[in-house]
Amino acid sequence: MKNKELEIIINNKLNTNINIKDYIPNGLQIEGKKYIKNIIMGVSACQKLLDIAVKFKTDAVIVHHGYFWYHESPIIRGFKKKRISTILKNNINLYSWHLPLDINLKIGNNVYLAKLLNINIIGKINPFIFYGYLKNKINIKNFLFKIKKKLHRIPLHFGENAPKKIYKIAWCSGAGQKFFEEVIKFNVDVFLTGEVSEMNIHIAYENRIHFISAGHHATEKGGVIMLGKWLKNKFKLKTNFINIHNPV
């Protein structure tokens, strides 16, 4: 498959043209070889992932966190120079899809979390926050155990005075802690996201709501995993998800 054809196909699948301002450019960020057969999938385009791509003579790398963030310096030196030099020297195509891969209703990060945790999706609180219900009311300890088992990490949990039985869940992959005040208006039992801020603990206590931080990386693996499986099944491309461990 041609590299630009792959970009169009994924753009269409993820509805990339939706009217949401993103923090980075989505799609083909660095152009490499014209034809693609082998693809490495990952969460972030770090040097470890690139080194693996070089080792396996990969044609393309597809990630959730790519380059050229709106708030970063445009100067390319140090570790950024090394990363980009690795890509250019080995003629690798670098693709990145950020918010489209969070909010997509079929292969997005939040849909993946719902499947892992057996949450029935009802709707959205805003374009980035999903909400839904568990099959039955369960103890918060059981829900935390399920997160640990499925995401392979111990989540940070705050909600010492919140009801022990939970049913209605709101969640947002990645850095969704900034939405907590918006979430509490919807009378949920739990808000699950990737990161945590100091203020979230006080908000959780004062509103008797469970707040769970399960890791930015851990909550954003699912989208690229499902995208890789879709590319493999539909277009017979060779895709391989590489999980570069990140405790954050």
Rank of each mutant, 00 (worst) to 15 (best):
I87P: 08
K89D: 15
N91A: 09
N93F: 12
Y95F: 12
W97L: 00
W97T: 08
L99P: 13
L99Y: 15
P100M: 09
L101H: 06
L101C: 05
D102A: 12
L105T: 07
K106R: 04
N109V: 07
N110D: 13
Y112R: 01
L113C: 05
A114Q: 11
L116K: 15
L116H: 09
L117A: 01
L117D: 03
L117Y: 03
I121D: 10
G123D: 14
I125S: 13
I125Y: 13
N126M: 15
P127W: 14
F128C: 06
K135W: 00
K135H: 00
N136H: 05
I140W: 10
N142V: 05
F143L: 03
L144D: 01
L144Q: 04
F145C: 07
K146H: 09
K146W: 01
K146C: 04
K148P: 03
K149H: 09
H152S: 03
R153I: 02
P155D: 03
P155I: 04
N161L: 11
A162Y: 03
A162D: 04
A162Q: 07
A162E: 04
K164I: 02
K165W: 00
K165Q: 00
Y167I: 03
K168E: 08
I169V: 06
I169P: 02
A170M: 12
A170Q: 11
W171R: 04
C172G: 10
C172A: 13
S173W: 14
Q177E: 14
Q177P: 01
Q177K: 04
Q177D: 15
K178N: 15
F179M: 13
F179T: 11
F179R: 04
F180R: 12
F180D: 10
V183K: 05
I184V: 15
F186M: 10
N187I: 10
N187Y: 14
N187A: 12
V188E: 02
L192G: 00
L192P: 03
T193F: 10
G194W: 05
E195Q: 11
S197R: 02
S197P: 02
E198S: 13
E198K: 12
E198P: 02
I201M: 15
H202C: 09
Y205V: 05
Y205K: 03
E206T: 09
R208I: 05
I209Q: 01
I209E: 08
I209L: 07
I209F: 04
H210K: 06
I212F: 10
H217V: 10
T219A: 11
E220H: 11
E220D: 13
K221Y: 11
G222A: 13
G223R: 05
I225V: 14
L227D: 05
